[in-house]
Simulated assay, not measured.
Amino acid sequence: MELVPFTNEHLDAASSLLALRHRAHRAAHPLLPAAPEEPAEARRLLEALRKRPRTSGFAALQGGRLIGFALGTLRIDTTWGRSAWLFAPGHALAPGASPEVYRELYATLARQWVRAGCFAHVALLPASDRPAVETWSSLGFGHEQVHALRSLDAVVSPSGAPEQGVRLRRAGMEDLDRLLEVAGLVSEHQRESPVFAPYLPEFSEDWPQDYTELLQGEADRIWLAEQAGRLLGFAIFSPAEPTADDLLTPPESVSFTVGVTREEFRRRGIGRALFACGLEEARRMGFRSCIADWRSTNLTASRAWPRLGFTPALYRMTRRIDERVAWARGHFGATD
């Protein structure tokens, strides 16, 4: 096997491998978009990925034939700092190729990533591809995020009214201030064990504008649960907007972006009732499927969302390199 930099000459063969991988993925998850099963659409996705800034990768050749590839993107922002991502369209193996090919591709990519100061490494993998998930686990990657789908053919039963006096309704602009008062509940929940996701003050700076746009959006919906004038929880649904290199989002899908209930009112059916309202409205609006994602370590979400009909489609797996590797040389007095 030979590893060489990925170039335009590898695009046709890589597109075929990606189309085959997506065909197998869609056999396990029929809600996924069908178009990437065709090499022409797979090529468009690959070309879109290659246009992302700081994207490069390697092709694995055997006897001159492409048996695998991996394209990584360096990401530098306030959320992740300096990180490197293997997005869903950015990798595939030929049928029958050993998973060891992934290990070699990652080893070559990771050397460049660490040299660029990127110590957080992320891979988006089909949840149904157990050999790939196990291979990346063997490279030190762990489950961090679940991206899931469910059909709107069957509406979730609200299991009756949450309790007497609880009112469910769609939010309006007059509810903006009340929503902003509880908007941080999700971040506060995920700050705690076992998620430990940082809740930085700057995260909330854009909330007034974000919630205003949601309340004014033509197809966005925020559903509220309230009792005696107190807001108990809310759920947000928005049209799912696929990116240029998206393999997950089906046509006519809605995104379940936020679902939260005050801790003291959980386990009373409020969240399920809010979700049922949102899903029924989305179906009336013509949406056919729903997308959601959650942290694997968020115990509440990882138990509740599958019960609401969501099936994992993609796993976000991460590895964090000890940054001391950038300067540690293993003995005192080293200067090079």
Rank of each mutant, 00 (worst) to 15 (best):
H331A: 13
L125F: 07
G117S: 10
A14K: 00
L31V: 12
L308S: 01
R221G: 02
A35G: 04
S253K: 02
A282P: 04
A276K: 06
R324G: 13
R230Q: 13
A304P: 03
P30K: 14
A282Y: 03
S159L: 12
A92H: 00
A219C: 14
G184L: 09
G140F: 07
G217R: 08
T108S: 10
I67T: 15
Q227W: 15
A127I: 04
G142N: 06
R267L: 14
A244Y: 07
P250K: 10
C277M: 15
I222E: 00
S253G: 15
R82D: 14
D336Q: 13
W223K: 05
R230S: 10
R82C: 15
L93K: 00
A228P: 11
L93H: 01
A35V: 04
G165S: 11
A301Y: 01
V133I: 09
V195R: 00
A34Q: 15
R65M: 02
Q164P: 03
T261I: 04
E205Y: 12
E37L: 07
V156R: 09
Y211D: 03
A304F: 06
A27H: 11
V146G: 03
F58S: 11
I67N: 00
R26L: 15
S255P: 01
T261Y: 01
E252G: 13
L105R: 02
G142F: 06
A59W: 00
T78A: 15
L17C: 10
T212N: 13
V114I: 08
L185V: 08
F119Q: 03
L93Q: 01
L274Y: 03
G68T: 03
L109K: 01
L31I: 13
G286H: 10
E47D: 11
F69A: 04
R307V: 02
P251E: 14
L3M: 07
P39I: 02
